[in-house]
Design a protein around this nucleic acid. Structure first.
Lengths: 197, 197
DNA sequence: GTCTATAAAGCGATAGAC
DNA sequence: GTCTATCGCTTTATAGAC
């Protein structure tokens, strides 16, 4: 990808974070990137094209920071439950990049209620994420039945998104959202552990 | 409120459920209600005015059907936990009115990320709802500490909204969403009960 | 109160010069 | 590749008759 394209997509990501997917105006993306609207069309054909590339761009960045969380830390061996908590809590950070990602993801979800075309992509990404969480849950609770871990993962990811929108709209403070999510992880892990013994 | 105003707001509720808050067109509201666009402006001043009244209208309807669930059933005395489950599960019904309400509520939430003006109203309604859930939780678990019940209520309402958007966009079936929510209620109630003994 | 007709503005998209 | 200028459609909002 050329630098110009990247610059425009970065601008688009900021605009999505500020106005939402539905509030995105091509002229605002151009202004944000410091180029003319014609150039945006030249590189991305039309508004859906801009949106498609911007969302892919944002998704790539998200993969980068969530998979980084999977790596073992320098601090030595870590409790699997702590690793799961750390991974999920990555969504609640006050970094511009993370806010942009969370905002875009929430918009995608909300928009999918009215736009069936988005659902397939959303279902794939969501299933992959839930599977990752379920995997970490079974590592934390070896021997836990697969369906139980799957259901727990679905609840945790749905809860995370419910909390995410509250955080992004300023209805709960970041620390509180993190605390609620952490408590939910412990609840689910304890419950899974209890099904074994 | 006059009949005409009510007719227009009912139309607006259907349009919001079909197109979303951002997708609402005044002309479509008018067509849905079977009146001219000018009449819509006459009664509600401008687009934000239509939106404001429509969302209040929808909120009132939601109050009506959720508070109805609080009443004792003819079937006799009911477990408090079951009453809580029943109340929360009301959000997952395939009735047009319920879908409209859930959709509009989800839209309100999603939109509030970008529109600070919506937050106050949302905070009030959300707090009242969470308080109701917390109250039922303490009835189910007498002696449970207030803050613990409050946190459980926040998790349950956030989870419900996370599941709601998945249901409305067809990513999970209704029965599955209900099952996940019911399991979460039991998890939270059991946990609260354990803090006492 | 309700309508038809239209003004005014916003926005996606393109033409054509450089 | 990049810009300025503009076209054309959509949508909000109002004027004025009834």
């Amino acid at each position: 990808m050329t630098d110009r394209r990247r610059t425009i997509l970065e601008g688009a990501a900021r605009v999505i974070a500020r106005r939402g997917v539905r509030g995105l105006r091509v002229s605002e993306v151009a202004a944000e990137a410091g180029v003319s609207t014609a150039l945006v069309y030249y590189h991305f054909k039309d508004r859906p094209g801009i949106l498609r590339h911007a969302l892919a761009f944002i998704g790539d960045r998200a993969d980068r920071y969530t998979s980084a969380a999977q790596e073992p830390t320098a601090a030595g061996p870590e409790d699997p439950r702590e690793r799961l908590e750390r991974m999920l809590l990555l969504e609640f950070q006050d970094l511009p990049e993370v806010r942009e990602n969370s905002t875009a993801w929430g918009e995608l979800r909300a928009h999918s209620v009215f736009d069936p075309e988005l659902r397939e992509e959303l279902a794939t990404a969501g299933a992959a994420w839930a599977a990752e969480v379920a995997e970490l849950l079974t590592v934390a609770c070896p021997g836990a039945p697969g369906p139980a871990a799957g259901a727990a993962a679905e609840r945790l990811t749905a809860l995370l998104e419910g909390l995410s929108v509250r955080w992004l709209s300023g209805l709960v403070r970041q620390a509180h959202a993190r605390e609620l999510l952490r408590a939910a992880v412990r609840l689910e892990v304890d419950r899974l552990a209890a099904t074994i013994t």
